[in-house]
Amino acid sequence: MACFLVSVAEAAVVKVMESSQLKKEVKLAESNELSEAVTSDVKIPLSRKLKWLSNLLLGGSVLLLFEHIWHGEIVPWFPFLTAMNDPADMAEMFKEMATVGVSMAVLVTIVWFAMCRVADKIVSGDSNEAKDL
């Protein structure tokens, strides 16, 4: 009914975090340009990882939004969600958001977290190999 709205809300928060993190990283890179080049390990920036999460959440939500339009659950006029016209449907919609919607957002986040761990391992493995040489 409107389960994807939970993911949209999470994506909005992630997008804000991503842009603030990107600003921080740019500032840090400008101030530590020389020292970082010598001392730091190769790492995937957090802003890039957050971009992966926002793409997963927003991309998925847009395609689910289309599915809801296909099934007539979303209409182009107020209140946009057909379930909002009937209190019984509204209760069911909120229940679906709390169960299916939250589960979707949680599973996407878990997959993203695992993806980041694997990517970090691959990148740090590469940099360790380079050090050994």
Binding site: N55, L58, G60, S61, V62, L63, L64, S103, L107
Partner: peptide, 15 residues
């Protein structure tokens, strides 16, 4: 990433 996001969401829906 867009397709994987949608796949995960539909997988939860299917469960």
């Amino acid at each position: 990433l867009m397709l994987w996001g949608a796949s995960i969401m539909w997988f939860v829906d299917a469960i």
